[in-house]
Protein backbone atom coordinates (compact mmCIF):
# COMPACT_ATOMS: atom_id res chain seq x y z
CA UNK A 1 0.00 0.00 0.00
CA UNK A 2 1.41 3.36 -1.02
CA UNK A 3 1.35 5.96 1.73
CA UNK A 4 -1.50 8.33 1.26
CA UNK A 5 0.71 11.43 1.65
CA UNK A 6 2.34 10.66 -1.67
CA UNK A 7 -0.90 11.37 -3.45
CA UNK A 8 -1.33 14.67 -1.61
CA UNK A 9 2.20 15.66 -2.54
CA UNK A 10 1.63 14.73 -6.17
CA UNK A 11 -1.57 16.79 -6.19
CA UNK A 12 0.09 19.86 -4.77
CA UNK A 13 3.06 19.52 -7.09
CA UNK A 14 0.91 19.28 -10.19
CA UNK A 15 -1.32 22.08 -8.97
CA UNK A 16 1.70 24.34 -8.56
CA UNK A 17 2.92 23.44 -12.03
CA UNK A 18 -0.47 24.45 -13.41
CA UNK A 19 -0.46 27.61 -11.36
CA UNK A 20 2.94 28.58 -12.75
CA UNK A 21 1.50 28.28 -16.22
CA UNK A 22 -1.56 30.33 -15.37
CA UNK A 23 0.39 33.09 -13.77
CA UNK A 24 3.37 33.40 -16.07
CA UNK A 25 2.50 32.23 -19.54
CA UNK A 26 1.14 34.73 -21.99
CA UNK A 27 0.13 32.33 -24.71
CA UNK A 28 -3.59 31.89 -24.25
CA UNK A 29 -3.63 28.28 -25.43
CA UNK A 30 -0.98 27.33 -22.91
CA UNK A 31 -2.91 29.29 -20.31
CA UNK A 32 -5.93 27.09 -20.94
CA UNK A 33 -3.79 23.97 -20.93
CA UNK A 34 -2.46 25.01 -17.53
CA UNK A 35 -5.99 25.26 -16.18
CA UNK A 36 -6.54 21.70 -17.32
CA UNK A 37 -3.42 20.61 -15.47
CA UNK A 38 -4.69 22.26 -12.30
CA UNK A 39 -8.00 20.48 -12.59
CA UNK A 40 -6.31 17.17 -13.23
CA UNK A 41 -4.12 17.57 -10.21
CA UNK A 42 -7.13 17.94 -7.98
CA UNK A 43 -8.84 14.91 -9.47
CA UNK A 44 -6.03 12.75 -8.11
CA UNK A 45 -6.74 14.02 -4.61
CA UNK A 46 -10.43 13.19 -4.75
CA UNK A 47 -9.89 9.78 -6.30
CA UNK A 48 -7.21 8.81 -3.79
CA UNK A 49 -9.34 9.86 -0.83
CA UNK A 50 -12.15 7.73 -2.17
CA UNK A 51 -9.84 4.84 -2.71
CA UNK A 52 -8.46 4.92 0.81
CA UNK A 53 -11.73 5.41 2.67
CA UNK A 54 -14.06 3.39 0.49
CA UNK A 55 -16.28 6.40 -0.08
CA UNK A 56 -17.92 6.96 -3.45
CA UNK A 57 -18.25 10.73 -3.22
CA UNK A 58 -14.71 11.38 -4.35
CA UNK A 59 -15.14 9.41 -7.56
CA UNK A 60 -18.35 11.21 -8.29
CA UNK A 61 -16.72 14.58 -7.75
CA UNK A 62 -13.97 13.56 -10.16
CA UNK A 63 -16.64 12.76 -12.69
CA UNK A 64 -18.12 16.23 -12.28
CA UNK A 65 -14.72 17.83 -12.46
CA UNK A 66 -14.02 16.22 -15.80
CA UNK A 67 -17.26 17.64 -17.15
CA UNK A 68 -16.57 21.06 -15.68
CA UNK A 69 -13.08 21.11 -17.14
CA UNK A 70 -14.52 20.30 -20.53
CA UNK A 71 -17.00 23.15 -20.18
CA UNK A 72 -14.31 25.62 -19.22
CA UNK A 73 -12.13 24.52 -22.08
CA UNK A 74 -15.06 25.08 -24.41
CA UNK A 75 -15.61 28.62 -23.21
CA UNK A 76 -11.94 29.45 -23.31
CA UNK A 77 -11.42 28.08 -26.78
CA UNK A 78 -14.46 29.97 -28.08
CA UNK A 79 -13.04 33.22 -26.83
CA UNK A 80 -9.56 32.44 -28.16
CA UNK A 81 -10.88 31.60 -31.61
CA UNK A 82 -12.93 34.79 -31.69
CA UNK A 83 -10.00 36.81 -30.50
CA UNK A 84 -7.79 35.37 -33.17
CA UNK A 85 -10.34 35.90 -35.90
CA UNK A 86 -11.00 39.43 -34.83
CA UNK A 87 -7.56 40.60 -33.84
CA UNK A 88 -5.01 37.99 -34.94
CA UNK A 89 -3.56 37.92 -31.47
CA UNK A 90 -3.18 35.14 -28.97
CA UNK A 91 -0.75 36.57 -26.48
CA UNK A 92 -2.26 37.78 -23.30
CA UNK A 93 0.00 40.78 -23.03
CA UNK A 94 -0.54 41.95 -26.57
CA UNK A 95 -4.20 42.65 -26.05
CA UNK A 96 -4.28 45.77 -24.00
CA UNK A 97 -6.72 48.29 -25.29
CA UNK A 98 -7.35 49.48 -21.79
CA UNK A 99 -5.13 51.93 -20.14
CA UNK A 100 -4.62 52.00 -16.42
Amino acid sequence: MIPFEYYVLLTLLLFCIGLIGVLFRRNLIILLVSFEIMMNALMILFASISHYTKDVQGYIIVFFLIALAAAEAGVGLTLVVLLYRKLRKVYADEINYFRG
Binding site: V22, M39, L68, L82
Partner: peptide
Protein backbone atom coordinates in the same frame (compact mmCIF):
# COMPACT_ATOMS: atom_id res chain seq x y z
CA UNK B 1 -13.19 40.32 -26.07
CA UNK B 2 -10.33 41.37 -23.86
CA UNK B 3 -12.71 42.09 -21.01
CA UNK B 4 -14.40 38.73 -21.47
CA UNK B 5 -11.09 36.91 -21.55
CA UNK B 6 -9.89 38.63 -18.41
CA UNK B 7 -13.07 37.74 -16.62
CA UNK B 8 -12.80 34.20 -17.90
CA UNK B 9 -9.22 33.79 -16.72
CA UNK B 10 -10.12 35.22 -13.34
CA UNK B 11 -13.13 32.92 -13.20
CA UNK B 12 -11.09 29.87 -14.12
CA UNK B 13 -8.55 30.72 -11.46
CA UNK B 14 -11.40 31.08 -9.03
CA UNK B 15 -12.60 27.67 -10.11
CA UNK B 16 -9.19 26.14 -9.48
CA UNK B 17 -8.98 27.63 -6.02
CA UNK B 18 -12.51 26.52 -5.26
CA UNK B 19 -11.76 22.93 -6.18
CA UNK B 20 -8.67 23.04 -4.02
CA UNK B 21 -10.92 24.16 -1.19
CA UNK B 22 -13.38 21.40 -2.02
CA UNK B 23 -10.51 18.94 -1.89
Amino acid sequence: LEGALKYFIAGALSGGLYILFLG
